[in-house]
Design a protein around this nucleic acid. Structure first.
Lengths: 336, 336
DNA sequence: TTGTAAGCGTTATCAG
DNA sequence: CTGATAACGCTTACAA
């Protein structure tokens, strides 16, 4: 491994000149050529650790996600990686396996001068590390997770609207018995998505029937069980909405298992238009989150902070979801 | 940000002692306690860049994948991350967007003292960077990609057996018109998987009918088109095998579009038992790659190399795939 | 424009 | 077991 000093000797200049050349400062034509040759000849590339030690910049950003196996985080991460790379940053990726302790550990590790900033998609409720990061001056962008407690830059989707819109659509198509398969109300997204459901029904003067509301957990098994319970009610819903990707998968599995005909026997609206959805027939009416945009916004916001621009702090970006109407819902339902 | 020197002062010892303490060397009880207190009080954590500069170890491993959006790489990456973390390593993740130029760029970036080793799942045919890495002494493990040209540690699956086994199974169930939807023969996996097909037919004295072989590219559109072409033949196949995840998805879409009944009108065997497969009815007979094992083996092998153990170099690990028989194939087919 | 030299925060050698 | 000190390879004043 050659160093700047080797290059300097080879090119007959001082190390300082080589360093300047490497960093795009103008040097005399002759020197420029000599240095270029020397670099080629010695196959030189600068030692990033040394540079980082000196400048206290790493050009690395930490990205923390709950599970790499989740389709829906991945498109975000792809965008984040791409966007950051364009600005010269690499990403260190951490999978917390949806575990708060792991999350804490990883963030602590990353904050030891490994990264210039952090994008956290996972997120414990009131992470202790938050203030430590603030002390250390490491900017953080929280994604897809609302934290009323921490003052922090955030990129979120309009969870309320996400569910409000399809419920409204169902109501307009004469559905009254509308069920929601939702996650934990202790989670921020769970609460907001339920609120969208509640508000839509309230706005149309439909009273909530508790039997049609399944606030369980954001996983497939729960959705699977919830769907079966719903359909075994004496007066089952005519339409079901799920409020996350995993819930959608679980519900669809139960629909397969019970051999329910969509949309004739049940109208169904899924969540997150990724992965499997295009293989389902009939084509699913679905709530789509703007994954790419979320990733892009998060990356841009973080870059801004890294570059010392703290205008508008804390910025909370709310991105709209999109309801896509396909063929899994009976429209203009005739009330019997 | 506090340094070792601050801690040393606070604890009334020398920086060397603090450093030793940090690295698990025995120090006198009294000093140990004092140093511990000082670290707590000053909220000290060592500067990893400085450490890395001194020791030329980063405790970071680069992982290069063709696409984070691919389900089947992700389970590997998860395992890799997990395994490496247990040994104190973090991973820098790079998505090459299946682009050789991007791959080259990323690897070059990573090799600037950013990482102690590299796991590359992507892989150009004869990457230039290979010898540069060798020069720099950065160990590399290639995953899922065979390279006859480079001498290199590799973790591969038994691609030939992967396809041989299901073809044999089909033959044993009286199928004769067996089609293969495969990727590019220029790719290593494409060649091997085709070889599995060829060999199985040869072993059972069935002549290859070129019309039943679709060596296209490993993407959904190609599989979609290929399946349609196959089924529009005057004498269409009774069974079709796909040889990658994307090919499976594309073929399934075409099956939906053409409204083909599985297995009555066509027997079908898919590839990669991840993501969507559990939602397909009837349950798919499928070729499963040992993703977790691949990830684990790759991580372990790399760790071994990083720790200076080059026994058995180059190691080429071949992992067996598993054929899972479910309900998408007509068994004991009656020949008309 | 360039050379010189100090210093970033560790670790490691060498005496003690 | 500990302290002093010289690196590691780069950047950046400062002076020329």
């Amino acid at each position: 491994m050659s160093t700047i000093i080797d290059v300097a000797k080879e090119a007959g200049v001082s190390p300082g000149t080589v360093s300047r050349f490497m960093n795009g400062v103008l040097v005399k034509e002759r020197n420029r050529l000599n240095i270029g040759d020397a670099i080629k000849k010695l196959n030189f590339s600068p030692n990033l650790a040394a540079r980082s030690l000196k400048t206290s910049k790493t050009y690395v950003v930490g990205v923390v996600v709950p599970s790499l196996g989740d389709f829906y985080t991945n498109s975000q991460v792809m965008k984040i990686e791409q966007k950051l790379y364009e600005s010269g940053y690499s990403i260190i990726l951490c999978d917390t396996i949806s575990n708060h302790l792991t999350e804490e550990k990883r963030v602590n590790l990353l904050s030891q001068n490994m990264v210039d900033g952090l994008i956290i998609c996972s997120c414990s409720k009131n992470p202790e590390y938050m203030e430590r990061l603030k002390e250390k001056g490491i900017p953080v962008v929280l994604v897809d997770y609302g934290s009323s407690s921490s003052i922090c830059d955030q990129v979120l989707v309009d969870n309320i609207g996400a569910v409000y819109e399809p419920v409204q659509y169902l109501i307009n198509n004469n559905h009254k018995r509308i069920a929601l398969i939702n996650g934990d109300l202790k989670s921020f997204t769970g609460r907001e998505r339920f609120e969208g459901y509640r508000r839509a029904l309230a706005d149309y003067m439909i009273e909530i029937d508790e039997r049609y509301v399944k606030n369980t957990y954001f996983n497939e098994q729960c959705a699977h069980d919830a769907l079966i319970q719903l359909m075994e009610l004496s007066n089952p819903p005519t339409a079901i909405i799920t409020s996350s990707y995993h819930l959608t998968i679980g519900a669809l599995e139960a629909i397969q298992d019970m051999n329910i005909k969509i949309p004739d026997e049940l109208s169904f609206i899924g969540f997150d238009n990724v992965g499997i959805t295009k293989l389902i027939r009939p084509h699913l009416s679905i709530i789509e989150q703007p994954m790419n945009e979320i990733g892009e916004m998060a990356a841009e916001l973080l870059l801004k902070r890294i570059n010392g621009d703290f205008s508008g702090f804390p910025t909370v970006l709310r991105l709209k979801t999109k309801f896509i109407s396909k063929n899994s819902v009976i429209e203009k339902r005739v009330v019997q």
